[in-house]
Amino acid sequence: MIRYNLRCSKDHGFESWFQSAEAYETLLSAAQIACPVCGDSSIEKTLMAPAVRPARKAGEAKPKLSEPTSEIEAAMAELRRQVEANSDYVGLNFAAEARRMHEGEIDQRAIYGEAKPEDARALLEDGVPVAPLPFMPRRKAN
């Protein structure tokens, strides 16, 4: 894929993505590229700066994705640790377990899990105290 900065004959600037330079030329010659502002099909490429990343220094350590890189990420990691240490993961049974606790069918305990948005909304409408967590539960992968 290649992105071009384009301009129509009425001086409207816009950008568009193309499969290749040849694809751009084919579409341009067939008048299949049009200005999104005025519909003009007289289009030309304008000056663009390439998006080039600087090379990494040889001695520079790569960041570890599992380690927080900011105070906010560290706070989120600590919140996750606290939730996982002090509550039971009930998975996709969260809505049913929360409702059963609220109705007194089972003992109260701290739980977390997953619920469809409509199930969570129904819990809230029924007065069941639930709140979304700002992270996804860890799932075991094969």
Results as ranks from 00 to 15, higher is better:
49 A>Q: 10
58 A>R: 06
24 Y>I: 03
99 R>P: 00
25 E>T: 12
80 R>G: 05
31 A>W: 11
137 P>K: 04
113 G>Y: 07
114 E>W: 02
67 E>Q: 11
46 T>G: 09
130 V>P: 07
60 E>G: 05
123 L>I: 03
96 A>R: 15
35 C>F: 03
92 L>F: 05
133 L>N: 07
115 A>Q: 06
2 I>S: 02
81 R>E: 14
17 W>V: 11
78 E>W: 06
131 A>N: 05
137 P>L: 06
113 G>S: 08
31 A>K: 15
54 P>V: 09
63 P>K: 10
9 S>V: 06
4 Y>V: 00
78 E>L: 12
82 Q>L: 14
136 M>R: 13
96 A>Q: 14
9 S>R: 10
93 N>P: 01
91 G>A: 06
126 D>R: 13
60 E>V: 06
57 K>D: 13
42 S>D: 14
127 G>V: 07
95 A>L: 01
142 N>A: 15
36 P>E: 00
61 A>M: 13
121 R>W: 09
62 K>M: 13
32 Q>K: 13
101 M>G: 05
22 E>C: 01
85 A>Q: 12
63 P>N: 01
119 D>M: 07
50 P>R: 04
69 T>M: 07
131 A>Y: 03
33 I>Y: 04
127 G>W: 04
38 C>R: 06
110 A>K: 10
47 L>D: 11
69 T>W: 05
10 K>G: 04
26 T>R: 14
125 E>I: 02
27 L>E: 10
110 A>Q: 08
25 E>L: 11
59 G>E: 15
51 A>T: 10
52 V>S: 05
62 K>S: 10
39 G>T: 10
63 P>R: 13
35 C>H: 03
7 R>Y: 02
128 V>Q: 03
